[in-house]
Structure formats: C-alpha cells, structure tokens
C-alpha cells in the first residue's frame, strides 16, 4: 500500500456523459426524419447525393488532417453533419461533381483553413451552399418534384399562391432535399430540444421576428395562413433549428443569442419581401454568423451580483450594516 500510485486530479472528479461525438450523433439522428422524407420525395437521386456528400465531407476532412499532420478528429462526426446538411440544402437534380466541390469549400476552405472544428467563422454547409448558389445558379434553383420542374411554394407565395398549407406542412412539394417537410423538421427539432442539444432562444427569436416582419411588411397583414406558409416555406425551419443554432457560429451569451435570432429574422424578412429571390435564409444566417464575434463582445454578461443595479443594492445594504450611529 505504501508505494502504490493513486489516481490524482484536480476537482471535479466526475464528468458528464456528453461528448462532441455524442452531440454530433444526436444531430444526425435529428436530421433523420427530414432525410427520409427527402429520399421518399425525390427518390434515388436524393439518396445518391446524400451518400456522396457525407462520404466526401468525411474523406476530405480525413485527408486534410492526414496531409497537414494534424490530429485526426474526423471521427467526432462534425464533417458527417456538414456533409448531410449540405446535401439537404441542394436540389436533388444537382450534378454529383458539384456537391463534391461544395464539400471541398465547406470542409477545406471554410472549416479547416480557419483552424478546424470550433474555429470556422461561418456555418460550413451554408457557406458552401451560398457558394454553389452563386456559382451554379441554374442547377441550384431548378426544383423538380414528381418529374415536373417548377417553382417552390415559397416562390409561388411571392408571385402567385398555389400550394396548400397542409402540403407544405407534410412536405410533398418541390424544394431542396431536406427543407420541404415542416413536420419532419419539427420532429427533429423536438428531439434536439429533448436531448438539450440546442436551446430554444435562437429559433424562437428568429421565427418570431420573421413572423412579425412579414405581418408588418409582407402585404397580407395578419393573415394566419400566409404567415404559416412563410414559416413552413423555404429553408426557414431547417435554418432556424439546424443551421442558426450551430454552436461554433452562434453566440454563446444569452443576450447574444437573442440579438442573433432577431438579426437572422430581420434579414430573412428583408430578403424574402424585398429581394429578387424568394429565399433568404442561407444568406441571412451567414451574414449574422460573421457578426457573432462583435455581438458576443458587447453582450458579455455581468458576473454574479456584479451588475450595476445589483451593486447599488448591495452597497445600500453594506452601508446600513456598517454605518456608525
């Protein structure tokens, strides 16, 4: 017993079970419903794109880390999430080569060149999607459903209203692979809330702000069907629950999250109402991503009991305790 070496460490001696890997696994699980709906909707083409996208994302990250002699962290699952998110954000008719290029932008340019996981300045999947939209506008915005190429419900909402709210909620209509079914996305979001992976702050303020904005400037006032269609349409739900809540590119302070959500909602509203496109979620989240360091800097919380109003209260108590008669 005398010379036995004991395990010693500084407190705390217990750790929670959650790891980066388990979080990424939960996100993948949460994306499962919408992925399945996407495959059911858009067929084998969608499945192929998803498989290629996830494989290339993981392969590119592994290759980069190997070549650059960095610690191999690809098994944490973040690259797989990025690959899946990117596939869910393109149309099923996109050529396979383009999704690989997109993953190159996401994983290498946006994520690894900035220092890897936790260091990227914008959401890799969204950044890559915007790159693809700008570079290959035609392929990225040709939405096919049931063999017929046509506008998405959000586009028709802007120009001439066609799809029913029920259709938009269930997801049998044109759009990107993963954005169509509000129901599937809400299921996934519910799982993330249940597992406490994400907090409601950002989605709440994002969607709330957008609804207020559309009600004020959308031209239809408080028409509930119109507002609901705006919420279900386009990439709002996948953006609000799965993209804007990305840990690395959203603020860590509570106030910062509120501001970030409102900013996303405002920008999306502006892009949707006044922009040339019907869409706007990707660009608004990316734009807000870039402002995160600034937002965080000005929303640092006061340490416990150190806020000016609380200090004043404490000083008054202190004086009462210590003053001489």
């Amino acid at each position: 017993m005398d010379n036995q070496l004991l395990n010693v460490s500084s407190a705390p001696h217990v750790r929670s079970k959650d790891t980066t890997q388990s979080i990424m696994r939960d996100v993948l699980l949460a994306l499962l419903p919408t992925t399945l709906v996407g495959i059911w909707n858009f067929g084998w083409e969608a499945l192929l794109l998803i498989v290629v996208s996830m494989t290339s994302a993981v392969a590119l990250e592994a290759l980069y880390q190997h070549l650059m002699k960095k610690p191999i962290r690809v098994l944490d699952g973040s690259a797989a999430v990025t690959g899946l998110l990117l596939a869910l954000n393109v149309t099923s008719t996109l050529p396979v080569g383009m999704i690989i290029l997109g993953n190159f932008i996401a994983i290498i340019v946006i994520k690894q060149l900035f220092g890897g996981i936790g260091q990227n300045i914008m959401n890799p999947a969204l950044g890559a999607r915007c790159f693809l939209v700008i570079s290959f506008a035609a392929q990225m915005t040709s939405f096919t459903y049931d063999g017929i190429t046509g506008p998405t419900p959000l586009q028709t909402l802007k120009f001439q209203d066609q799809a029913s709210l029920w259709q938009m909620f269930l997801g049998n209509h044109g759009g990107t692979i993963g954005e169509t079914s509000a129901l599937a996305l809400l299921l996934g979001a519910g799982y993330l809330f249940y597992r406490r992976i994400i907090r409601p702050t950002i989605p709440f303020y994002y969607i709330g702000t957008l609804v207020v904005f559309i009600a004020l400037f959308g031209g239809h006032g408080l028409d509930p069907i119109f507002l609901a269609k705006h919420v279900c349409g386009g990439g709002l739900l996948i953006g609000a629950f799965f993209m804007a809540t990305d840990y690395t590119t959203s603020p860590t302070t509570h106030m910062g999250r509120v501001i970030f959500g409102i900013l996303c909602g405002l920008l999306t509203g502006i892009f949707r109402v006044y922009g040339a496109n019907a869409e706007g979620v990707s660009f608004s989240i990316i734009f807000a991503n870039l402002l995160v360091p600034l937002i965080e800097r000005y929303t640092m919380p006061y340490a416990y009991g150190s806020s000016p109003w609380n200090r004043k209260k404490n000083m008054a108590l202190f004086q009462r305790m210590s003053k001489e008669e």
Binding site: H13, I23, G116, Y247, P251, T252
Partner: peptide, 14 residues
C-alpha cells in the same frame, strides 16, 4: 472519469 476523458477543441456550445 478524468483519466478517461480525452480533451478535444472547444466547439463553443456555451
């Protein structure tokens, strides 16, 4: 737990 835990980069989950 401490010995079994492997440190990885901060993901800013907050």
């Amino acid at each position: 737990d401490v010995m079994n835990a492997k440190e990885s980069p901060c993901i800013r989950c907050g």
